[in-house]
Design a protein around this nucleic acid. Sequence first.
DNA 1: ATGAAAGGTTCAGGTTGTCAAATATTCAGG
DNA 2: CCTGAATATTTGACAACCTGAACCTTTCAT
Lengths: 147, 147
Amino acid sequence: MPNDELIPEDALTREVVDLMAGLVAIFHREYEEAAAARSLTGAQAKVLALLRRGPMPMRHIAQTLSCEPSNITGIVDRLEARGFVTRESDPQDRRVKLVAATEQGQAASAELRESLNFAREPLAALGPEERGVLRDLLHRMLVGAGG
Amino acid sequence: MPNDELIPEDALTREVVDLMAGLVAIFHREYEEAAAARSLTGAQAKVLALLRRGPMPMRHIAQTLSCEPSNITGIVDRLEARGFVTRESDPQDRRVKLVAATEQGQAASAELRESLNFAREPLAALGPEERGVLRDLLHRMLVGAGG
DNA sequence: ATGAAAGGTTCAGGTTGTCAAATATTCAGG
DNA sequence: CCTGAATATTTGACAACCTGAACCTTTCAT
């Protein structure tokens, strides 16, 4: 991971960082609201979103969300209690618990994802070709970083 | 606030939303880490950042961060207990408490802000002219939204 | 077989957040 | 001047999130 003088401390960089901070704040707030509208917390929605592609061990969830495994235990407990998720031992290695979204969980997650596409206010200011430019820039930023 | 069919539900929009979600996750994580490195929580760092331009009433802080005033009470309590912030009654209206960053608080906030400019990994992938494009796009998005 | 290592859970403790109720201050009318 | 509504903040109860240490079970290497 090359991490050296690539980023100059100039006004432009600072401006972009501030703008991103603003965008992050809006995005974060809208995500929490969209989750709350389906009586999910932000953390629960994130876990549910991770399970879209299939079941996942607890530890993998914790690593992806950069938090302690013991934290995931509680979040999955609450999701499981409400029928959004199931917990099953992996037959290959009975130490690991595979967390899988139920049909209800999949539905809630998909619904939330759809609502984000519509509700994402900031994007309304950009035309299709500008979104294309933005997509390319964001993509370049994300492949370089740890995302 | 025109909020109608401006956002088509197409693949491009969905892709941009997903990319932004990834970027938001990275940004958020790095912000928390930078704050933790100065033994601040993310919420405390946000409040401290708001006070860079001067003292601010509790209610104004709560409105800016989209949370309940009673929540700010606790955060400011902890910041105050550690000398990052002071609380004084506004002489104009003794109901309101003006929260001001101490010298120590200003220093911590400025330091955190500086560290973000250097540490912001994703931006390293972009050259100066691309950052300019990104800045313009982000700016357009933010003036339109509630940011 | 034994012991180290790995995946999860449990527990204690701190922070964030909400909501309802209480306090203090301001302000408009009578 | 006095009363009552409105505003700013705080308090208390409660839930969720998050960490760190201790613990149990299962796996794996020796």
